[in-house]
Amino acid sequence: MKALWSTFWALTLVLTTSFLAIILSHVALEVGPVSTPWPRFGIIIVFFWMIHRPDMMTVPMVFMVGLAQDLILGDIAGAGVLSLMIATILLDRMLPPIRTMPLVWRWLGFAAFAGLVFALEWILTSAARLSVQPLDPVFVQGGMTFLVYPVISIAMRQFLRIGRTPRRAF
């Protein structure tokens, strides 16, 4: 029973933080072509839970988070979710070793993950629009997302009292 409750709370936490992360990416502080692209917090949250609760961040969960992100942010539906899922599956084997590593290594792992997600989404968006999309905003948003990762990771680990190994998480 205790294990069931623990799983239920973990699932609620993963879903809530994922939804809030997408909403945070959606907040309009600046608008339009001259605005600074805002980080993609959804990608950060997916990677964070893949590291700390891989049993929760499964392919169907990545699908749900990615679809919610596409629909809420108004991107081409499916481009974000597909790139997130492909990156997740491709990097699945890379993740177990870095789960117990220090932050710097996890940050590098995130760089590979986010880089792959942005590259795939750029390709899928360009294919859907039948024209090569500009790369500058993608690099800026990718860079912003990369820089914000350690801040979010440290804050969430402190707040949720997460240790180094996934089994000891909350």
């Binding site: 990416s25 959606h26 907040v27 309009a28 600046e30 608008v31 339009g32 072509p33 605005s35 600074t36 692209p37 805002w38 993609r40 809420i72 942010l73 108004g74 991107d75 081409i76 481009a79 942005f118 989404e121 750029w122 968006t125 999309q133 905003p137 993608v138 800026v140 948003q141 990718g142």
Partner: peptide
């Protein structure tokens, strides 16, 4: 809300 900027330029 806004789309974030990299792939779509839209507002809510």
């Amino acid at each position: 809300g806004n789309s974030g900027g990299a792939f779509t330029q839209s507002i809510t």
